[in-house]
Amino acid sequence: MIIKNGNVLVKGKIITKNIFIKDGKIKDFNVEGVHDNQIIDAEEMYVLPGFIDVHTHGGNGIDTNLADEKELKELSGFFASKGVTGYLPTLLTDTHEKTCEVVEIIGNVMEEQSGSKILGIHLEGPFLSHEFKGAMPDDLIVDSSIEKFMEYEKKSNDNIKTITVAAENPGVLGLIRYAVSKEVVVSLGHTGATYEDCMMCIEEGANRITHTFNGMRQLHQHYPSILGASLESDAYCEAIVDGLHLHPAIVRLMIKTKGIDKVIGITDSVMAAGLPDGKYKLGVNDIIVVDGDARLVHGDSRAGSTLTMNKALKNLMEFTRLPIEECIKMITINPAKMLNIDNDKGSLDIDKDADIVIMDKNYDVIYTIVEGRVVYNNSGK
């Protein structure tokens, strides 16, 4: 495949270039002439690294806790239409049996994929805080268990990529040590723990904060808590950039404090993403969406978002007033580095995977390409 005449993001700059793709990899930026290849003319379009969403519970009527293999493949197709080339299906805290069932389903789908690529599984729980559970079902939150986590690993065929835990959950330090030893990324979230306990978890290897500022004890000058630890440490900070979970000024403050290379834009999307207001499910929960805002039917907690990644990029540009070359880091190379897959994904470089989104001047998705395959085409050609 050749992508020609595009405004290509290479090494932090937008430059008009051609891209030659072979065997799913980017092979050359200087190809000239006509070859016996599929050709995409990207004139006046942006050619960007594909988006990576490390925290999503679903979209287009599909919930990751409830989906079968067919629905997961449909979900990957939906995400492809939003410029996503890779994502982590995120599982809400559920029963042990249901979690084992779902991680096995996702592991099976990963062996034969189409659309956006499932890069692994994100377990959001069940080893969390009762006090800061948010939309997590209180009766299903349990103490940390290496044995249970090992069963999730086995059922998923070792495809657990990351797990969110609370720093005060009993036994959490042992679980963090085990998970890190298995190259699983540990994230802190849904926690009311002290600053000291959070820093201890970070020192043991936790290196990400789940939806920073949401589902956690807030910052206090005498009790810095998880927010003090997240902003002071080198941990990556997730940000739900829908404009509801975080005021734009907080997004700017997070970037100013952490540096743009340590902030990761996420959707935390639910099955209502891409659909009208109404009643939906989030795992075991009933939720209702009014004016695009998802909340629990019983209780006042927000229950994820209806955000999609193409809109996340537009929001980041609007909130921060930074150029696309800067904003896109937060949904491409930053999550790739956090997941330790940046040798293959997250930027457009020679011999990296050809994970590409092509957008028009309004930042609407025209093509999505995953490992050299066109998985979404809105060009009319």
Score class of each variant (00 low, 15 high):
6 G>V: 09
10 V>H: 13
13 K>Y: 14
17 K>Q: 13
20 F>M: 14
27 K>G: 12
30 N>P: 06
39 I>T: 12
42 A>R: 00
47 V>L: 10
50 G>K: 03
58 G>W: 02
59 G>A: 10
62 I>R: 03
64 T>C: 15
71 E>F: 07
76 S>H: 07
77 G>Y: 11
89 P>T: 04
93 T>N: 00
97 E>V: 11
102 V>N: 10
113 Q>K: 08
118 I>Y: 10
124 E>W: 12
124 E>M: 04
131 E>M: 15
133 K>Q: 14
137 P>F: 04
146 I>S: 03
147 E>I: 11
154 K>A: 11
181 S>K: 10
211 H>W: 08
214 N>M: 07
219 L>E: 04
228 G>F: 06
232 E>P: 12
234 D>L: 12
244 L>E: 09
251 V>P: 00
252 R>F: 10
253 L>C: 15
258 K>S: 01
264 I>N: 01
266 I>A: 05
267 T>W: 08
267 T>N: 05
280 Y>N: 07
281 K>N: 13
282 L>P: 02
286 D>S: 10
291 D>G: 12
298 H>G: 12
300 D>Y: 14
307 L>E: 01
309 M>C: 04
321 R>E: 14
321 R>F: 15
326 E>W: 11
327 C>P: 00
347 S>I: 06
353 D>P: 03
359 M>D: 01
360 D>R: 04
365 V>H: 05
375 V>T: 04
